[in-house]
Design a protein around this nucleic acid. Sequence first.
RNA 1: GCGCCUCUAGCUCAAUGGCAGAGCAACGGACUCUUAAUCCGCAGGUUCUGGGUUCGAAUCCCAGGGGGCGCACCA
Length: 506
Amino acid sequence: MTNETDQPADDIAAPTIDALIAERRKKRAALADAGIDPYPSRFDRTALAGELHQRHEGLEADIRTGEQVRLAGRVTAVRRHGKLSFATLADTSGSMQLLLQVAAMSDQAAAVLDSLDLGDWVGAEGEVITSRRGELSVDTTELWLLSKALRPLPDKWHGLTETDTRYRQREVDLLANPDSRKVFEIRFAAIAAMRRHMEAEHFVEVETPILQPQAGGAIARPFFTHANALDIDLSLRIAPELYLKRLVVGGFERVFEIARNFRNEGVSTRHSPEFTALEAYRAFGDVDDGMDLTEALVMAAAQASTGRTTFAAGESEIDLAGPWPRLQLLDMLEEKLGRRVHPTDPRNDLVAVCEAHGVTPLPTWGPGKLVFELYDQVLLPGLVDPVFVIGFPVEVSPLARHTADDPTMADRFELCIVGREFANGYSELNIPEEQAERFEVSSAAKAGGDAEAHPADQAFVRSLEYGLPPTAGIGIGIDRLIMLLAEVEAIRDVILFPMLRPEAAG
RNA sequence: GCGCCUCUAGCUCAAUGGCAGAGCAACGGACUCUUAAUCCGCAGGUUCUGGGUUCGAAUCCCAGGGGGCGCACCA
């Protein structure tokens, strides 16, 4: 990889990028010729930039601490002043200025400095000092090249703005745009906090199949693939729900999965074909326990990742501080619509209400679906502050337990913030015959051409026949939660490598 | 899928029918306290691709490609 058979520069066909890369190869070769390994196998670091800043906060200008450190990171800026230079070294914790006086450095370090380019990984050794201007620095005596950046970095001031490139070459986005890095730090911290919370609540983290004979647990168009060994077609999971409940049947009373789900549907600012959901199931709980858990998880995520409870979302300022109101859907609809609706109302009446509020009903929609669409299209967009909406029609909740005194409504909640659904949960339906019957109805509808119907899953019904205890289940849309916490508008900004068309060849 | 917008140097952007330019990065030089360092010099182009209109196209038209936004479906 490092053999340096450098052609003369004028040999290189026009495009500038090739010339820039050739220039950097040449520098790498010069170091190698001087006996310096441009790709050392390891480096012993003794300090992090962020930790040094913390430890030496408030130090006066022009101080020598006597502390010797070895730092490693990427060079993000160099300011050369003849025999004195300054460089900025960025590591995982932050950045640190290197003060580089040729007179104080070894010959090898001077050679490395001489060939240094923005983007190079280096290791530096020296004394922690403050510069005359008071900036904490490392008065460098030794400097090692750890890996050469052959390609030039984006503009140091403007960074990388082209969205296409930011998504396709996320690594460049991350190293050039601190804001982008920050978004993902929030993501990682939030997910880690939710894991910790689940562990503290004695949930076990499990993994269920992504490749499934039949995608269930939600209503969505799946991706398909094929297993050669078994010669069968498989779907990619659209939700882990059915498998997780089977684990509760099996005696794992508290399970959760941070599940990548795949839905072969539209791509938009708020929809990605692959997205992450946290699903959790807790035996002996009901929908109220599900809301408690959801609220605790979201708060834990917000606290750990940002330390705040208020977030800007579009034009609104959202305060996540709980407890969040828990309101009945049918009551909220009554207030919004000026009349009470219910899945037992005559279908024509519900159709009329829909049309009066700009909702265009489809012929396949039953009364429950009509009520749900009133929620989704009329009520939900206006729900800005966090609110648990409780009680959804059974017709659109095929896996939820029906309400004790109303067989057409289910003990189900949705968490709504800034007009979007963030979480969903319910008391799980655990009566096998009722589940089988619901599947029968929906799979008949599916066979009749209704794409929005849950397929029957006999293995799941059979598992219910072994006994699913009363169980609370929740699902939280992680990507959307991160969008809220990181205050970004596009789901692609919170997914490291979002799905894109392949780059055109050549 | 439909509509609108967008694509120019490695990066960020100008040039709106008349010589394709600037800043940063690079390259050569000066510089021992800078921090978007400064100064002098030099170089860098398939203007996304293909076709068309025109004396002349980055610019106007057509087709294609990538991306973004909006709508629809969905979470």
